[in-house]
Amino acid sequence: MGFKHKDIIALRDLTKEEILLLLDTAENMREINSRDIKKVPTLRGKTIINLFYEASTRTRTSFEIAAKRLSADAVNISPSTSSATKGETLLDTAKNLMAMKPDIIVMRHAISGSHYFLAKRLPCSIINAGDGAHEHPSQGLLDMLTMRDRFGRLDGLKVAIVGDVTHSRVARSNIQGLTKMGSHVFLAGPPTMIPTGAEQLGNVTVCKDMNEAIDGADVVMMLRIQLERQGKTLLPTLKEYSRYYGLNPENLKLAKKDAMVMHPGPINRGVELSSYVADGDQSHVMKQVENGVAVRMAMLYHVSGGELVE
């Protein structure tokens, strides 16, 4: 089975089978990452541009390493050094980059939907490394891979997602992916941070408080609280937020024994996640990061037309 898409912009656009294909490929890629010589010639001669309009350490590095392990040439462009500050439009920037004939553009952009805008106009593949509050498909995939590693399946899981769902592209990609794979997602957060019509996104339940969401959960996924995004109207103080929507060893007991704790990073220690939990036995945060490289290798590989490697 091949992968039919030129671009990967949202897990909403992928079928269950396509998601499985990406996860299976990622598992194979993981083997490469454990070798002494972590490099295969698969994408030799391909040029990949990492175009990051928003700051990123983890995701950008992860995409860059993924490209290099597949022997592609990767170039990083970040906003401070780009023409964005000179008033050039996104389309003009992309057209100029296109003239240099890249095969894949990996982009992060603050405006939801920017990737569709480019994908419609450019012949190269576009991979979404995060767009506004829309989706972050590589994060959704790496989260699902991490869950599958632990449970051997993705159907029938109870996954709690806690925090600012409204502004979270991580939450949207996880909801789209997980509900497609047969999991049930429970959302909790201050009502100021739960988007209208969230239940319509699939098998999703909006809970009245955090305890209800994590009660009996297989996975507790905590979202990063970002004061710079939330401003002053959505929550009074981080202290109060932490008290009602923070995960600590005490409320974690409500979840299943050995439930997974996940966080997309970077963590605000002592706010959404207490250090005891972040560094505890149930934390899979580092495993998520590790899987990130493999998942991104799989994404680069499949938009380049690769078949499943057996």
Binding site: G132, H134, R169
Partner: peptide, 13 residues
């Protein structure tokens, strides 16, 4: 408009 479409599209309502 703030509603399901905005939620799915990740656009501010």
């Amino acid at each position: 408009n703030e509603g399901f479409a905005a939620t799915e599209l990740g656009l501010k309502g």
